[in-house]
């Protein structure tokens, strides 16, 4: 490891850390340093850290080496869990809402049941009216612009 106050050169072994890991660890300290990576030989990456502002470059390089160790572990864990993670997120995004469990006092009174039945038939009636004779109905009107909706309406003259 070569170093001066303003620049430190470090070598990283590609047999120990993948290129992705090294790139990410270098990226993570770009708040404090200008970082450049070069391939030194087949097995080694040379990383140059040039400090930004008044930071301690030694501390920056320490952050880099800590992050590199962490990234290796994280990458391993992620690789091991990638499929499972994808499965669980897909499951979460596509699962139906679970019905709420019934509690003891959840039953409706006869009046409430009657009101609910009336409301249901009202809604069913409205749906029938809206969709009768119209293919590709757009009940919320979300495909229609204001201009399309109001085309042909006469503008009121301003006084």
């Amino acid at each position: 490891m070569k170093h001066s106050k303003d620049e430190i050169l470090l070598k990283s072994d590609l047999r120990k850390y993948s290129l992705d890991d090294i790139r990410y660890a270098a990226y993570s300290v770009t708040d404090e340093a200008h970082v450049e990576l070069k391939k030194s030989n087949l097995k080694t990456i040379e990383i140059s850290f040039k400090r930004k502002g008044k930071v301690s470059l030694k501390n920056t390089v320490k952050r880099f080496t800590d992050e590199l160790k962490n990234e290796k572990i994280r990458a391993d864990i992620f690789k091991n869990n990638a499929e499972l993670r994808e499965h669980l997120i897909l499951k979460a995004l596509s699962s139906e809402e679970k019905p709420q469990p019934q509690t003891d006092d959840a039953g409706l009174t006869p009046e409430q049941e009657k009101e609910l039945d009336e409301l249901i038939s009202q809604v069913e009636e409205e749906i029938k009216k809206e969709s009768s004779g119209r293919k590709n109905a757009d009940p919320l009107g979300i495909n229609q612009t204001w201009e399309e909706k109001n085309a042909g309406k006469r503008k009121k003259s301003k006084k």
Binding site: I73, D76, I77, F78, K79, N80, N81, L84, R85
Partner: peptide, 22 residues
């Protein structure tokens, strides 16, 4: 989650095999 076994040898698991994504 069951660990996979390939034929008669256990698939080489990572050093962090039982750790969930975190």
């Amino acid at each position: 989650v069951k660990e996979k076994k390939v034929k008669n040898k256990t698939k080489a698991v990572s050093a962090y095999g039982a750790v969930a994504d975190s």
